[in-house]
Amino acid sequence: MKKMDRNQMAARVAQDIPEGAYVNLGIGLPTLVANHIPQGREVLLHSENGVLGIGPAPAKGAEDDDLINAGKQPVTLLAGGSYFHHADSFAMIRGQHLDFCVLGAFQVSVAGDIANWHTGAPDAIPAVGGAMDLAMGAKNVLVMMEHLTKSGESKLVEYCTYPLTGARCVSRVYTDLAVIDIKPDGMHVVDIVEGLDFAELQRISGVPLKYRETARA
């Protein structure tokens, strides 16, 4: 079994973003999805700080410190893109005008709860940014994360032990091992990485998973 790397995960998410979609990509891993949207597919990327229609990264030397994304990286604007203020930007989010947001996470629960902003450690500085607004506002909340923590525990959980970002809001999870839909009756496996069978995925995940093979059995 070979785990997907960060770019393979991003490419897998990009497959599911259709032409015409309005999408917000979170800071970190989700930002990579932009690099994998096929040429010619028109997808509009939104950034919390008031940009719709983000283009490719600027050439070295052509960066503009007035044009950045939510991760404070320099970006460009596509022809047809627009700028707006922060309250409008979050009206767009909260008002369910974005088709997808892609968030990183520490944990996702069977019910679709997401925890991604705070470990709750006593000396940690909490920081939430726009994640809670996106979790409640986007039509589809997609999560991209490694399947297991560094110490080997599943990040798919029965109940989140970290403080919640949003309750019952995640629709699909992309990990380095599998793609999993969250439905009212639980977690449904869509894809498994090559060389890993469902029984093993189920064993390391630690939460009940449903899969088409089990449906047949």
Partner: peptide, 10 residues
């Protein structure tokens, strides 16, 4: 006082 970004703006 930690305020979600959209709440801050609104």
């Amino acid at each position: 006082e930690l305020v979600p970004q959209g709440n801050l703006a609104e």
